[in-house]
Lab assay of single mutants.
Amino acid sequence: MTTFKLIINGKTLKGEITIEAVDAAEAEKIFKQYANDNGIDGEWTYDDATKTDTVTE
């Protein structure tokens, strides 16, 4: 398992969460579901060097 981080730069929700996932694709799926569940819809970027997804509304 690898640690992945999501940075949220939303209009109403800001912060970050960290998860353990098998790979980047699994982490992205989990993060996008989390964002959807919390009403966050924005531009996504991924930095492989830091294993960090960022969503900005």
Rank of each mutant, 00 (worst) to 15 (best):
M1T: 12
M1A: 04
M1F: 08
M1L: 14
M1I: 10
T2F: 14
T2H: 13
T2Y: 14
T2E: 05
T2S: 08
T2Q: 11
T2M: 12
T2K: 13
T2C: 15
T2A: 06
T2N: 07
T3H: 07
T3E: 10
T3D: 05
T3M: 10
T3S: 06
T3Q: 11
F4R: 05
F4S: 10
F4Y: 11
F4V: 12
F4E: 12
F4H: 08
K5P: 12
K5V: 12
K5T: 12
K5C: 15
K5N: 02
L6R: 00
L6T: 01
L6H: 01
L6Y: 12
L6K: 00
I7H: 03
I7P: 00
I7K: 03
I7G: 00
I7L: 03
I8L: 07
I8M: 03
I8R: 00
I8E: 01
I8Q: 00
I8K: 00
N9H: 08
N9L: 12
N9I: 13
N9V: 12
N9Q: 08
N9C: 15
N9R: 11
N9T: 05
N9F: 11
G10R: 01
G10A: 07
G10T: 14
K11P: 08
K11Q: 10
K11W: 10
K11G: 09
K11R: 11
K11L: 14
T12K: 12
T12I: 11
T12H: 13
T12Q: 09
T12N: 10
T12V: 11
T12M: 08
T12R: 08
T12Y: 13
T12G: 07
L13Y: 14
L13E: 04
L13Q: 05
L13W: 15
L13V: 09
L13N: 05
K14D: 05
K14Q: 10
K14T: 09
K14C: 15
K14E: 03
K14G: 04
K14N: 05
K14M: 08
K14P: 04
K14W: 13
G15Q: 13
G15D: 07
G15S: 10
G15N: 08
G15K: 12
G15R: 12
G15H: 13
E16F: 14
E16I: 13
E16L: 10
E16K: 05
E16W: 14
E16M: 13
E16S: 10
I17N: 00
I17T: 00
I17M: 06
I17H: 01
I17V: 07
I17G: 00
I17S: 00
T18R: 07
T18I: 13
T18S: 06
T18Q: 06
T18V: 10
I19T: 02
I19E: 00
I19N: 00
I19G: 00
E20F: 14
E20G: 03
E20N: 07
E20A: 06
E20T: 11
E20L: 14
E20P: 01
A21I: 12
A21S: 02
A21F: 14
A21E: 02
A21K: 05
A21N: 02
A21M: 04
A21W: 14
V22K: 12
V22N: 07
V22P: 07
V22T: 09
V22E: 04
V22Q: 10
V22A: 09
D23L: 05
D23G: 03
D23K: 02
D23V: 10
D23T: 09
D23P: 04
D23W: 14
D23R: 01
D23C: 11
D23Q: 02
A24W: 15
A24Q: 11
A24V: 08
A24R: 15
A24M: 10
A24Y: 15
A24P: 06
A25H: 09
A25N: 08
A25W: 10
A25I: 09
A25P: 02
A25Q: 12
A25E: 11
A25M: 11
A25R: 12
E26K: 01
E26L: 05
E26N: 03
E26H: 08
E26C: 09
E26I: 04
E26A: 11
E26W: 08
E26D: 06
A27C: 13
A27F: 07
A27L: 07
A27P: 00
A27T: 00
A27E: 00
A27M: 04
A27W: 06
E28N: 08
E28I: 13
E28V: 10
E28Y: 14
E28F: 14
E28Q: 13
K29N: 04
K29P: 00
K29E: 04
K29F: 10
K29I: 08
K29Q: 08
K29M: 09
I30A: 03
I30F: 13
I30E: 01
F31G: 00
F31D: 00
F31K: 00
F31Q: 00
F31P: 00
F31V: 01
K32D: 01
K32A: 08
K32R: 14
K32N: 06
Q33H: 07
Q33G: 02
Q33W: 06
Q33V: 05
Q33K: 12
Q33M: 09
Y34C: 13
Y34R: 01
Y34E: 01
Y34M: 08
Y34A: 01
Y34H: 02
A35W: 10
A35Y: 06
A35K: 02
A35P: 01
A35T: 07
A35V: 11
A35I: 12
A35S: 02
A35M: 13
N36D: 11
N36I: 14
N36K: 15
N36P: 01
N36V: 13
N36W: 14
N36L: 15
N36H: 14
N36S: 12
D37E: 13
D37A: 13
D37L: 09
D37I: 10
D37M: 13
D37F: 09
D37Y: 09
D37K: 07
N38A: 10
N38H: 14
N38Q: 10
N38S: 07
N38K: 08
N38T: 03
N38W: 15
G39I: 03
G39Y: 06
G39C: 14
G39D: 05
I40V: 09
D41V: 14
D41R: 11
D41L: 11
D41I: 14
D41Y: 14
G42N: 04
G42T: 04
G42L: 09
G42H: 02
G42S: 04
E43M: 13
E43L: 09
E43D: 09
E43R: 05
E43V: 12
W44E: 01
W44N: 02
W44T: 03
W44V: 02
W44L: 02
W44H: 01
W44K: 01
W44P: 01
T45P: 03
T45Q: 07
T45G: 05
T45V: 11
T45E: 09
T45K: 06
Y46D: 01
Y46T: 04
Y46E: 02
Y46I: 06
Y46C: 14
Y46R: 07
D47L: 08
D47P: 04
D47V: 11
D47W: 09
D47Y: 09
D47Q: 07
D47E: 09
D47A: 08
D48H: 11
D48I: 12
D48Y: 12
D48A: 13
D48E: 13
D48S: 10
D48W: 12
D48F: 12
A49I: 10
A49T: 10
A49R: 09
A49P: 05
A49N: 08
A49F: 10
A49Q: 09
A49C: 14
T50I: 05
T50A: 07
T50N: 08
T50W: 09
T50R: 05
T50Y: 07
K51M: 10
K51N: 12
K51V: 03
K51A: 07
K51I: 04
T52M: 05
T52H: 04
T52Q: 06
T52Y: 04
T52F: 07
D53T: 15
D53C: 15
D53L: 15
D53W: 15
T54F: 09
T54G: 04
T54L: 07
T54H: 06
V55A: 07
V55D: 05
V55H: 03
V55I: 11
T56E: 06
T56L: 05
T56W: 08
T56N: 07
E57A: 05
E57M: 07
E57S: 07
E57R: 02
E57T: 08
